[in-house]
Amino acid sequence: MHNNARRKKIILRFLFYIVIIAVVVVWAFPILWIILSSLKTDRQIISQNLIFIFKPTIKNYYQIFTSHNFNRFLVNSTLVAVGTTIIVFLSAFPASYSMSRYNTGGDSMNLGILVTRIAPPAAVLMPFFIIFKYLNLLNTLWALILVNISLNLSFALLLLKSFIDEIPVSIEEAAKMEGASLFQRLVLLIFPLARSGIITTSIFTFIFTWNEYLFAMVFCSSQKVKTLPVAAGDFVTAYAIEWGPVFASGTLILLPILVLTFFVQKYIVKGLTIGAVK
């Protein structure tokens, strides 16, 4: 009897790990394969054998950095992502505070923000192009920063608001009694208390901006302002797909995201789930 239960337990445990391993393989493998392939030669990539063990080459990386100016694109992508993140934070922080504490705009504001999230990018591409031409912003990184603000601000507002909602009003009342001005309360009290919310929002804004492809392709075609995803797309040439550089640039683009998911997992989970649980 006792033995039987134990055997059952061992079998269950075994099955459990099999399923877990299957899950890991299915979801990690494509990413792993990108990284592996970036270290292969072209011939190894389109080989009809599965090559797991090979002599790695950095030829693909060498190529994208020397003949394709990827150091420049890396700087551009970083500038756009960091710039957008800072501006989104600076504008969303006070606004979400106001929305949380005074219910500014009420439900209609929330609904409005939701609608702006679903505006199809394909339909607003042309208006943006014309506005940017008029403002003389085409082929500048500012154009991309503005577009990415548009794509991220409403999400940031909702996210930050729900974090600030969780900070009890009583703490603030106490500070107010002691004569702290609104500005002092915002900077010295709410800012540290909402820290995890701010980090979460910033990570998301950063990643989404880092990933943006469509607008970057149209608004910044010039070499000096090109961003990484567009540059990766450039290896799909008129007559062939250069898989080696595609994988190398893909790895380069995915790297910061990989690092973020490993080191600040907590915040990412929070950001992804808070919208749904709310």
Binding site: V24, I31, W33, P229, L254, I257
Partner: peptide, 16 residues
């Protein structure tokens, strides 16, 4: 591992 597909760059993943 499970977090990663959600955040990976769509254009890169699509090409893969």
């Amino acid at each position: 591992i499970l977090l990663f597909p959600i955040l990976a760059t769509p254009i890169v993943v699509a090409m893969v």
